[in-house]
Amino acid sequence: MEIVPLGDSALIVRVRDRFEDAPDEALNEVLRTFRRLQDAAIPGVIELVPAYTTVAVFFDPLQIMAAGTEPNELLDWLSERIDAVVAAIGDRGRAEVFPARVVEIPVCYDPEFALDLERVAQHAQMSPNEIIDLHSTAKYRVNCIGFTPGFPYLSGLPKKLATPRHAEPRKKIPAGSVAIGGAQTGIYPQQSPGGWNVIGRTPLRLFDAARKPPVLLRAGDRVRFRVITRAEFESLKR
């Protein structure tokens, strides 16, 4: 584990060096660290951001200094507390298994929604239907939420489906678009620009500022896609 400053008001706890070798293990360790740090409620810590191999810790340096820590001791003060939280996890904590939530996302692969299905099919040298079958039967996991509010980066995309991003991003990708970017798949929660290959659309709202929590998915969740017809899409949308 390594702790590196991210400017003067945040730091990054690098829990692992690599992700691809053992994504599940890496993510479990990151989430364990995230939860323990959250429970520890270190004074001055504002919020935590888990992603792939790291947990970022955002803090208020003024609050920590107001409690008596000198400016030149602040990083050490915080690092010691983070180290202690991580050390306390121990082997028993590491053996603990967190049941991941499983979320099913209905996806309509209708040609009107699947702007890049042909492109993905050509790249994979498969038929569009084979792409849909493969994409909707695989098991995915949310590595992190980012890019835009509620956007899930999912691992677990079958290797055959990996498709390079568009060199020129689209200016507008509709909300709910399910897309492939390189070896990852994701869902655009709101209309936004983007370079990923759109192959379908979900009627679900992945982000709603009025909802608590505002997101449908969180880091660590397991995700499955369920194929729905255009009619089902329209009725779920309502």
């Binding site: 504002i46 951001v49 955002f58 939420i145 835009t148 509010p149 956007f151 929590p213 997101v215």
Partner: peptide, 10 residues
């Protein structure tokens, strides 16, 4: 809007 970064909120 501090406190919502883990949900991708700037």
């Amino acid at each position: 809007r501090a406190g919502y970064r883990q949900f991708g909120v700037s």
